[in-house]
Design a protein around this nucleic acid. Structure first.
Lengths: 118, 118
DNA sequence: CGTCACGTTGACGTCAGCTTCAGGTTAGCC
DNA sequence: GGCTAACCTGAAGCTGACGTCAACGTGACG
């Protein structure tokens, strides 16, 4: 699969995929002419990267953890890092829940009585 | 209260407070000499701003919503925006929960059997 | 009056995850 | 051989929420 097709399938831009490679998040074989050629598994890989990014991990952290996330084999250091990231995510969820609650209260109060006519 | 004290109390840097003013998120009175002078309510205000930033709102959005969040009075457009943001936060929480679950699984599998000795 | 922490503005730097641009190459089809 | 879409690399630009530096003004104390 070439880069354009992977981009369309994954919903990630072509340039972003090349950026992932620069960051060593994603490998590619090359055609004799030098064009990138991806195996089918690359699609899952890209989606995994997206998930981890979406969870707020940096590319540096992702590059460190990708091996064990996809293979299930980890060094003690990796395991520690995994736990740190999971806890960070959990804390972030707490924050977001607080903010959501706050906005929810505002919405309730506002809808109840105080909508200003324009 | 001057800017340094507000910074220490709120845990936000002096630079950040001036940035908030630039972005029209925070007002200040001025001493005859031109130094910023904040009322006590500024502390709550700063904390509110931090909460909204932490929830992923942009300063542009915060500046639009701050009036109604602090006063409880909103236009229909503000109300719509509030709901959009709350839903965005809720979606984000979903994402994070998925990522957390995924990392949790990896951690379990890894701790169970596959820790590699260094 | 000096002094020194604290304050002021303005401009530039930073970081991450890209996008955009420029200038050139490859692949596949007729 | 020629056309066009798709691809390549390298470099510059972008956004947002500040950090950092320079050069200078303020204010409380003794």
């Amino acid at each position: 699969m070439r880069i354009g097709q992977l981009a369309r399938r994954s919903g990630v831009s072509v340039r972003a995929l090349r950026y992932y490679e620069e960051q060593r998040l994603l490998e590619s074989a090359r055609t004799p002419g030098g064009q990138r050629d991806y195996p089918d598994e690359a699609l899952e890989r890209v989606q995994l990267i997206q998930d981890l990014f979406a969870a707020g991990l940096s590319s540096r952290t992702v590059v460190e953890l990708l091996p064990c996330v996809s293979t299930g084999v980890a060094t003690p250091a990796m395991l520690e890092q995994l736990i740190i990231e999971r806890d960070r995510i959990a804390a972030r969820i707490q924050d977001l829940n607080r903010a959501k609650k706050k906005l929810g209260h505002v919405i309730e109060n506002v809808t109840a009585a105080n909508v200003v006519q324009d």
